[in-house]
Write a protein that binds this DNA or RNA. Structure first.
Lengths: 134, 134
DNA sequence: ATCCCTGCAAACTGTTTGCAGTCGG
DNA sequence: CCGACTGCAAACAGTTTGCAGGGAT
């Protein structure tokens, strides 16, 4: 069960519901807007706080946008993995990268680095967006 | 020739000098502080503008910090590559990742993504910092 | 002389935080 | 009832931008 939050409140539930309903990365602001759109009036600060808690608890994945926004996405896998994100429409593919993990470990070892963490994200234009733009 | 800036000014030169003198990623603010420290009084805005220009021209590499700062580093190679950055002291190893490029291309193709870009950075503790922390 | 570049300060964006009130357990 | 959670607004950090003046070509 991924429910590590301390207290169950309606706004927290609403946030989780939105996250559960999408497969894409969303920014805190997007999430906030989505909540208002569906009627749940939740403070922006609350969204940020909840998102941070959830990220800390490992319930959601977070990554930083090209423009510096933090994007969140509900995340099934326990260990981290990587994403292929469409630059235009934001749709996301979760991708495995066995070789990458291994490579990271090898490189770290080679230089004597420990406590390794890696950030591997692919950005591109999905087929649909590429067609539109042409 | 890596000198794509439009006009040669003293502050631009000072910025390039600082970048040329280090192998680590520095933030615009660090760079600005370094300039003042060595006597060159350059406006912060100017540093940002110069850095952007240089990044656009491909003279420097840029990546985003965990905390959202943009870090810049002078960059020899024409094509991009990847880095192993010490979380603690900021020292950087430039690492090659032939397999990664290939993997990225394969994954993109598999999902029909084009105009691919990838962000691959390794973070860890270098041997020295790991020893200190123990 | 022209036009880009610079500096300053104000504007902006995304995010965080202090504080008083509210609600879940 | 108690304490964590919420909302608001103000605070913040990093970055960008408008405008007037100055230097490079």
């Amino acid at each position: 069960m991924v429910a590590t939050q301390k207290r169950a409140t309606s706004q927290r539930a609403a946030i989780q519901a939105v996250l559960a309903g999408t497969d894409e990365f969303v920014s805190a602001q997007d999430l906030h807007a989505a909540l208002r759109a569906e009627g749940s009036v939740v403070g922006l600060a609350t969204v940020y706080r909840a998102l941070q808690d959830m990220a800390a608890a490992g319930d959601v994945d977070s990554l930083r946008n090209r423009s510096g926004e933090v994007l969140y996405r509900r995340c099934g896998q326990p260990s981290h993995h990587h994403h292929l994100v469409c630059r235009s429409c934001g749709s996301t593919q979760e991708v495995a990268a066995p070789g990458v993990e291994q490579w990271a470990r090898a490189v770290a070892e080679q230089y004597g680095y420990v406590d390794l963490d890696h950030q591997v994200e692919l950005f591109g234009l999905c087929a649909a967006c590429a067609a539109v733009r042409d």
